[in-house]
């Protein structure tokens, strides 16, 4: 009776990011540029023009099993995302490059820690 996972992009390459303690996956094709900041902080410029801020870039991964968000997440989380996945036993959110979550957005200036 396990739910059947919905694989959305099994062969796609993703960039794994660490931000606010959580694991995030950005589609590799959407990442236009990376700009290293102080320490391991990285500013990602997406093809859409949006800029993301990551505490750490873990690397690229291919073959994530991306599942849809489901009703609970859509109800209790206001952000939009392409889906959820698990990497190395840890859940991660696959972001929508067109509407990345506010928690990852970089609004210019000095890269800063966003209050949770």
């Amino acid at each position: 009776m396990r739910p059947v996972p919905t694989v959305l992009a099994s062969g796609e390459e993703f960039m794994l990011l660490r931000r606010h303690g959580g694991l995030w996956a950005a589609p590799g094709s959407a990442v236009h540029a990376c700009e290293a900041q102080a320490g391991e902080r990285v500013i990602l410029r997406l093809a859409s023009g949006a800029q993301l801020e990551a505490d750490q870039v873990l690397g690229m991964v291919r073959g994530l099993g991306v599942r849809s968000l489901g009703a609970v997440l859509r109800t209790c989380w206001t952000e939009s995302a392409r889906g959820l996945a698990v990497h190395a036993g840890e859940p991660c959110v696959v972001i929508d490059e067109a509407a990345p979550p506010e928690a990852l957005r970089f609004h210019g200036g000095v890269a800063s820690e966003v209050e949770e």
């Binding site: 303690g21 206001t78 952000e79 996945a85």
Partner: peptide, 23 residues
């Protein structure tokens, strides 16, 4: 449980169960 920024209070976050993400 891994917290999810911007989530409602009753949603504690995401966990992994049997290889699947679990709210």
């Amino acid at each position: 449980i891994h917290a999810l920024p911007g989530a409602a209070p009753e949603l504690l976050g995401l966990a992994e169960f049997a290889g699947e993400p679990l709210p």
